[in-house]
């Protein structure tokens, strides 16, 4: 049997291939934990810059209850974030009011009604929508929505809660649609078939069977959409009017937490109170989005794992 080629059997020794394999294993492990290191790094670095401010200068009560964000005031700077929080909340709230029903509706249509080519094309369109950069959305708010709102509602300024809320809604909708559709798809076909065999119509199947079964996934989709809206920066910076204000109507201009950091960080001296105050806003944003993501993850995985 072609003895010329046959070799002595491989001895039980760690050879080059074995060491290469171990080295690769260590390298990819480092890559694997990089995500943990980075999330910790983000926490450490923004805390490092902001912590001194929180312990020395910041009045927590003022931060959450005062609407006066005047970090550059000559005689007495104030750091009340209430108006900024209200700005973020109002814009995100309006965005969700628009995006949640429409995203769920779109997810149901794509997942439960559309078939074949239609479904494929709609999914691609939704994916493309999600790819539009936020600065382009901000520009749309500024240059297209702004004059439109002024004309339609006869108001002096079109950069307001309505404008940025709609923009943010359109931005958050694709990702929510995709996640919601995934959640619907995760419901086994057997459920649908069983219900249809019992004579239920399609919409009965959707509302009575598919929706309850996909509930957790849908809630997570909405939560992640909220997180997205909460953290959005450029669009809100450009379309919300940039005035620090607790809004009383959708036509009021506001300023969001994210937009405040983006607008002011460039003008602060490194290490100044103002600079550190902006990092404090960052810590706040980080904490909120962390909680939202954690909750979404627990909602999806919790019941399955435990």
């Amino acid at each position: 049997m072609a003895q010329g080629i046959a070799k002595a059997p491989l001895p039980d020794q760690r050879n080059l291939a074995w060491y290469v394999d171990k080295t690769v294993q260590v390298l990819v492990f480092v890559g694997g934990i990089s995500a943990i290191l980075l999330i910790l790094g983000i926490f450490v670095f923004i805390t490092k810059e902001g912590m001194g401010f929180i312990t020395q200068t910041l009045d927590i009560g003022e931060f959450f209850t005062s609407p006066n964000w005047r970090p550059t005031s000559e005689n007495r700077p104030t750091y009340g974030a209430l108006a900024l929080i209200a700005g973020t909340a109002s814009v995100t709230g309006l965005a969700m009011l628009v995006a949640v029903p429409f995203s769920l509706g779109a997810a149901i249509f794509i997942g439960e009604f559309a078939t074949g080519k239609t479904r494929e094309i709609l999914k691609i369109l939704v994916e493309m929508l999600a790819a539009i950069p936020s600065v382009v959305w901000g520009f749309i708010g500024l240059s297209i929505m702004n004059p439109l709102i002024i004309d339609l509602f006869n108001v002096p300024v079109g950069l307001n809660v309505l404008n940025s809320g709609l923009i943010l809604g359109l931005m958050a909708a694709p990702i929510m649609t995709t996640l919601a559709e995934d959640a619907l798809k995760a419901v086994p076909d057997g459920y649908r078939e069983a219900a249809e065999a019992m004579g239920a119509t399609r919409w009965q199947v959707i509302f009575r069977v598919v929706f309850p079964a996909a509930k957790n996934g849908l809630v997570a989709a909405v939560l992640l959409g909220v997180g997205r809206g909460f953290g959005e920066t450029m669009a809100v910076l450009m379309a919300s009017g940039h005035s620090i204000n607790i809004p009383t109507s959708p036509f009021d201009s506001v300023r969001a937490l994210t937009a405040t950091i983006a607008a002011e960080l460039g003008e602060t001296a490194v290490g100044s109170d103002h600079y550190r105050a902006l990092f404090t806003l960052g810590i706040f944003l980080f904490a909120i989005t962390f909680l939202i993501n954690l909750t979404a993850d627990l909602v999806v995985r919790g019941p399955r794992k435990r």
Partner: peptide, 11 residues
């Protein structure tokens, strides 16, 4: 007890 399980599997 093989140190190099890949060598074992090759055989």
């Amino acid at each position: 007890k093989w140190k190099n399980v890949y060598a074992l599997r090759r055989r």
